[in-house]
Simulated scan of single mutants.
Amino acid sequence: MVVGSDEEVPPELPREVLDGPRLRLPHRDHIVFSGPLRDAVRIGHTYSWGEFATQSPTLFWAADRSWCVASEIDFDSTLVGGSAELVAAVPGLPGPRGPAGGTHDSLRLDGDAVNL
Rank of each mutant, 00 (worst) to 15 (best):
A62E: 13
V41R: 09
W61A: 13
D64M: 04
H104N: 12
I73F: 10
H27N: 05
L86F: 14
P36W: 07
S106H: 06
E12S: 00
T103M: 11
V2S: 11
E16P: 09
L23D: 02
F60A: 06
S106T: 12
L23Y: 01
W61M: 13
E51C: 08
E7M: 08
R28C: 00
A113C: 05
V114D: 10
V87W: 09
V17E: 09
P96D: 13
F33E: 05
D110L: 14
G111V: 11
V80Q: 04
H104T: 11
V69D: 14
S48R: 13
H104Q: 09
G102Q: 10
L13H: 07
M1Q: 08
V87S: 06
D64Q: 06
N115E: 07
G98E: 10
E7C: 02
T78D: 07
I31F: 09
P94F: 01
G50L: 05
P57D: 04
M1N: 10
S66D: 14
F75W: 13
P99F: 02
D64L: 01
T46L: 03
H27D: 14
H45Q: 04
G81N: 01
H45V: 02
P57M: 02
Q55V: 15
F52N: 11
R97G: 15
W67R: 06
E85N: 07
T103I: 08
W61Y: 15
A84H: 15
V69F: 15
P10K: 13
I43N: 03
